[in-house]
Write a protein that binds this DNA or RNA. Structure first.
Length: 115
DNA sequence: AGTCTGACTAGTA
DNA sequence: CTACTAGCCAGAC
């Protein structure tokens, strides 16, 4: 279990670390990441962290992170608004109307899958 | 220092 | 399913 507010590792690095572990054809949510990191209710911080994700290396597969409804809320923050959906579809994730199809089946919760 | 905003969530109706 | 609310943290102004 990764704990938040460690002195060595920043919250953002942990977010990126978890997102990179998301397997292809799977997606996760901001809240799942937040709970796994121990921030719990501060899921907005995950979204804020994703705002900086393009500055870190290696790059973070931010397209696999959606909100709890499976909605691609962050697509407009990509270099191209269509990029997020195209990346998901290229990995075999069906996306329709900015929403991941069969979302519950494709959900990958780090708190349960990783531990 | 106060206020507003946001790639959010859980609860309630 | 939708709509609204409160709570949450960091940053911009």
């Amino acid at each position: 279990m990764i704990s938040i507010r460690d002195k060595d590792t920043s919250f953002y690095d942990k977010v990126y670390e978890v997102v990179r572990k998301v397997p292809a054809q799977k997606v996760t949510t901001y809240g799942a990441i937040a709970r796994y990191l121990g921030t719990g209710k501060s899921s907005r911080l995950v979204g804020w962290a994703m705002n900086n994700c393009h500055t870190v290396k290696p790059e973070v597969p931010a397209h696999r992170v959606v909100n709890r409804n499976g909605l691609l809320t962050g697509k407009m923050h990509f270099s191209s608004p269509n990029l997020m959906q195209e990346l998901l579809e290229s990995e075999g994730v069906e996306v329709q109307d900015n929403q991941v199809q069969d979302f519950e089946e494709r959900l990958w919760d780090p708190g349960k899958e990783l531990q």
